[in-house]
Design a protein around this nucleic acid. Structure first.
Lengths: 198, 198
DNA sequence: ACAATTCTTGACCGATTGGTTATAAATTCC
DNA sequence: GGAATTTATAACCAATCGGTCAAGAATTGT
């Protein structure tokens, strides 16, 4: 009842998410969002609330679309995929996405953690939630690999999982800092052999 | 000749650097700088130029004071220090600084690379210069270690140097993202054993 | 003492920030 | 068709942004 909304909410939220991804939080003004989303100022506030609330919804969308996609090789692997293969597939997939042109934007959550982490408790919560999810997925795969006897020197799986995450976050940073994709790829390969050789 | 400046320029620049470090670029307004440095608005512009110019000087000071200090275990080691020890000392020193309370601010250059890298060519140049310096220092130490036969399986030193940098950058990120210092320390230990065991 | 030079003060600038409000347009229920 | 409800438009708000300017205060050389 009442006048129907003339735009698709999720489509507009996706545009907002990409704009935050590209420009950061502070550098994205409400006017930028109005122009990019193509909806009126009032409609923007009426639909998504204020800037921070809008960003939280954008971050949730990122988690739902981008982050979940990165986890797929670990969580949605075909039955019978070894733990080792799940990890290698995860790294290959992450490497491919990171080395694509759009990978130069880095990771929205990493960008925002550094820019806004001190001021946004909800962002911190979302971030730690994602880290825990990824850590558990990696640890589970490492445990499987250990039991399958796939890794040369099965290490402390918790430590190894964190180590992989550390490397990936480091590479995301270097990609955004301007390191050439070829060098990024070589580092992924280095990490993969390191995992396999203990 | 003329009226002498009533403040110490380098002291004020240090305050500005720390403020950028703590708050980021966009979130630090000229008014913040005026209040924190304790000098007048006009004096600020007269002494340091506009905001971006001031930041460049702050970044140069960071390189001179903070970054150079991190490099010391690698470049200013006592004669006879093995390559392996130089690297382990570098990591221990970095770990200690990162796990201190002030380490929660992360690394100014990492923060700025993510926030301003796209818009500030001079920052990019400074960043790549620091990366190259660190990479060369690590590579040289790894070469020495290789010749001294200190490392179990001497790897490609260039790749290994980049790998260490990747891990350190990743850990700086996690520290700022709220990971507990104990966990950071454990990761540094993991990296150290990894280096020693090939 | 006086002119020249430099630093300090505080008011001031237009532009932009995030956010709100009255009013008009479109739709649904009755 | 008309009342009720919701969205859209655009003007508007105080506050803050980065940056400048005119005038006064402090120091130098002569």
């Amino acid at each position: 009842m009442g006048r129907p909304t003339a735009f698709d909410r999720n489509e507009k939220l996706m545009l907002a998410m990409k704009l935050f991804w590209k420009q950061g939080y502070e550098r994205t003004s409400m006017q930028d969002l109005i122009d990019t989303l193509g909806i009126n100022r009032f409609s923007l506030y009426n639909t998504f609330g204020d800037k921070q609330t809008l960003f939280h919804q954008a971050a949730a969308l990122y988690q739902e679309k981008v982050f979940a996609e990165l986890l797929r090789p670990l969580l949605d692997a075909p039955p019978g995929t070894t733990g080792k293969d799940r990890i290698l597939n995860y790294l290959d997939n992450a490497c491919q996405k990171l080395c694509a042109p759009s990978g130069a934007l880095g990771c929205l959550m990493q960008n925002m953690a550094l820019e806004r982490g001190q001021d946004d408790a909800m962002l911190r919560t979302l971030l730690q939630q994602q880290h825990a999810t990824l850590e558990n997925a990696l640890k589970a795969a490492l445990e499987d690999a250990k039991n399958e006897d796939c890794l040369a020197t099965p290490p402390d799986t918790g430590q190894a999982a964190c180590h992989i995450m550390t490397c990936v976050q480091g590479l995301i940073f270097f990609r955004k800092a301007g390191t050439a994709p070829d060098k990024i790829r070589a580092q992924f390969e280095y990490l993969k052999t390191e995992i396999q050789n203990g």
